[in-house]
Nucleic acid binder design. Sequence first.
RNA 1: CGGGCUGUAGCGCAGUUGGUAGCGCGCGUCGUUCGGGACGACGAGGCCGGCGGUUCAAGUCCGCCCAGCCCGACCA
Length: 407
Amino acid sequence: MLYSKLFPKALRQAPKDADSANAKYLIQGGFIHQEMAGVYSWLPLGLQVLRKVENIIREEINALGAQELLMPALQPKDNWLATDRWDGLDILFKLNSKIGGEIALGATAEEIITPLAKAYTGSYQDFPFALYQIQNKYRDELRAKAGVLRGREFGMKDLYSFHLDLGCLEKYYEKIAKTYLNIFKRCGLKAVRTRATGGAFSKFSDEFQVITSAGEDNIYYCSKCKVYYNNELVRAGKCPECKTKLGKPERAIEVGNIFKLKTKFSDAFNFKYIDKNGKEKPVLMGCYGIGTTRLVGTIVEANHDDHGIIWPNEIAPYKMHLIALFGKDKKINQKIKSAALAVVASEAKQSCEVLYDDREDASAGEKFAVADLLGIPERVVISEKTLAKNSIEIKNRKSGKVTMKKL
RNA sequence: CGGGCUGUAGCGCAGUUGGUAGCGCGCGUCGUUCGGGACGACGAGGCCGGCGGUUCAAGUCCGCCCAGCCCGACCA
């Protein structure tokens, strides 16, 4: 990709309203553009990052045998009435249709997937199975905040599993928990499994929290149980299970949450299977979410410095940020240009994605500042200086380490 | 949803006792620069968030509304 053609260019100044690191750098770098409170466009650079996150999730979830589908954001009111969430879920967006009636804008997808799964299954032989999608969700939050960390329209991977018995559900639940930790690790994050309230479904649910000062949740570690607990469970500074006195809380961002729904939704939609003996039994469900857009924001919160973003390798929009520094000697400039194009070509052969800052009118300082802001892991400079040594200069964004490499 | 703050050029901001709008960056042209956001000259760019009111006259005063940000509450 030629930087001269990239839409849009990085902003020189960060927007004033952006005070969280993710909003500041993602907007300034031209990754996202705010349209209204909690609603963002994902610009080409940002979409590259988002797609990488999504694809890591796809790889990991597909490996568990779940199948991807795509459900609508427009959802029938009746389904939400069936679960008492039409009036019960305060953040639900409700739309009026010109042909009459009301429609829910999907805040989540249990109301679609449960009747959908029911429509195509019946025998115990169909189970267990799992379906997921990566789709935008809509929640009418009273207060969107912190850039992409809490939006009203946001990306989410939502996975639903269907089981014959509790043991099978619990086994799958643990498999997902393990996979989640792996997903976050690949995203360059250290996430910790954290016990949280289970809502109406079970005693606990599990959250995946990334400890960072930008977090809006407080979590506590119980050194006796070796478990993190969400603030909402902790009463009077004591571990909710073993009652050990807990230390200071840590700020964390919730990037995933998994629930054993059990029969909460299958009951609402009368979703049953026929067992070996021809008897009807309720299907047990689990649901498992990862906020994809929030994950991108969290990665920025956890990986930046005063100059900009430091993308983890697997997430970076490009692997290499190539900078050509031109001087006034036209012959040398020509050499620099062809050397740069040769690097782009040879990297392409190894399917290494390069962002090439080919601008001839931008100063060295400007190009360096943009490179730091965009946070691509490897910065490569070709200039008169490096060509004199028949080399290129490679600087690691994270470590700052500079090395020379022969052309 | 309660409390606070803010809306003026693409971005960041100034605008005095009311007199019809300015700066920096960015953008365009030309020239000089060329390893950490270079410099000069000229130039383009405005529904001063919206509606209503007061006034000879409103970016400025008054009222209502809308939007954005922050704190809190909320977050199956």
